[in-house]
Design a protein around this nucleic acid. Sequence first.
DNA 1: AGCCAGGCCCTCC
DNA 2: GGAGGGCCTGGC
Length: 326
Amino acid sequence: MLLPIDQPLDLVSTLLSGQAFRWRIGDATSFSSPGPPRRTGEDVASSRQVREEPWYHGVIYRNIVKLRIVPGGIEFYSAPDDERVVAPLLMDYLGLNVDINEVYRNIGTDDRLRASIAHYPGMRILRQEPWECLVSFLCAQASNIPRITKNIEDMATAFGRPLELDAPAGSGVRGMVRRSSFPTPQELATATRQQLWDLRLGYRADYIYETTQLVAEGKVDLAAMREMDYDRTLAAMMEIPGVGDKVANCIMLFSLDRLDAFPVDVWIDRAMHEWYFTPQGKKLNRKQLRLWAMQQWGRHAGYANHYLFHGRRLMGKEDQREGSVA
DNA sequence: AGCCAGGCCCTCC
DNA sequence: GGAGGGCCTGGC
């Protein structure tokens, strides 16, 4: 099915850069290292080099979704639910209801940000499912993307529901995709503390165990948090074990409709001191940085955060993986 | 071998 | 209120 879009969308930056952890590149289920771009194999003889966008697959709303960019929009398949059912969910999940050009006008306030925007046009903030997002960022403290990805996948495999997507013949999609849904709070609540510990989550296992009980028992109501104002949502989030200011802001930004949320991690901390509070200025703590940013960029501060984060990796160090194949 | 990671929490000052 | 150390595990 084709989902028409008329604004830039950069799938690799949006899906694989650390806001969600269940997206993979490639036609079929494969957890081997991504490696170099794969050959299509069929149109090698063709003199005209048709540059085809890669497929991605992930799991949202208990569906496997496989998608890629095509002229005019997004081509996608889903299972077990029909594409007509998944289409609006996918649209919403990808944040395509947000006018990104308006966002850029609001956050393009200096050269650094404008450079980052120019380098990552179409990198979006996802609108994820709050429960999965919460567990993901409980995993994230003192960790890294590959490890978080493994932790989340292990929980899905152990406590979620197995799914498969068999692409229709002649669709040009090759390979069966087998994934598991991320467990619901009730499903994950069946896990014992020891079982979680055995997934090698480290000390995060305790946070996840405690949090799962709270959500499954209804003592934490994530859906309700989408309706609250920023301060109330933040306060409610920080009641959750293992959730501090940074993690709360990540969850709020990526899943609770708070595009004004501004998570300050070590990288943002460095970038802001380096770029906005230069040498001798007194050091601001993380909460002060967040308040300053929210003042500066208002209701799209979270987008500024994401572009600062990626902008710094752009200028700070070399860009190791970049899909700019000739 | 030893240090540290995309934090949080608890203790102590 | 804020600085400092501990915490599972994995990677360098």
